[in-house]
Amino acid sequence: MALGAIVLGGALGYAAVRFRVEGDPLVEKIDAILPQTQCGQCGYPGCKPYAQAIAKGEAEINQCPPGGEEGIHKLADLLGREFKPLSAEHGIEKPKAVALIDEQTCIGCTLCIQACPVDAIVGAAKQMHTVIAGQCTGCELCLPPCPVNCISMEPIAESVESWKWKYPVFKLTPSRKEAA
């Protein structure tokens, strides 16, 4: 029996070293659910730090406005916690938008470039700046630093390519007998 315990203990010890999981898999899973807007509305400097805070139990799951209700549901499912409505102090869920720089007004101060968490603004000092729309996450972090308020958020319009079939609904019409 003692020999068995030693052998099994050795095997477990070996497995612990050999199959060690790098990083925290829970943080990765939470981070995969978060929308990666990197907006900081949750109170953390990015999606990853928020994921780490949730994993440690320091943060609630309802602090991410871009993730919305669906994101909270997914986090609740993953973590086995109760669903909570989005916390109002962290913001409200908005339709996805991208930043648009009014190129007539832009003075080329580079402040927005420094603020963008995903490097989606191109430009140089005293040169006009512009947003790479495809890379913009809509975090709105470029709005406050702009000294001339030339950045606005444009909601993404539905196009033929992005249009989605709607959920089929029952059409309730009164039957002919009743109508008559």
Partner: peptide, 28 residues
Amino acid sequence: RFAKSEIWAREVEKEAADQARDRYEFRL
């Protein structure tokens, strides 16, 4: 059709999120 377009939309979203994550990490 509803399910397919929802899945496609999610895939597009996921791709965008992955790209944003990479770009954010690269910026850091």
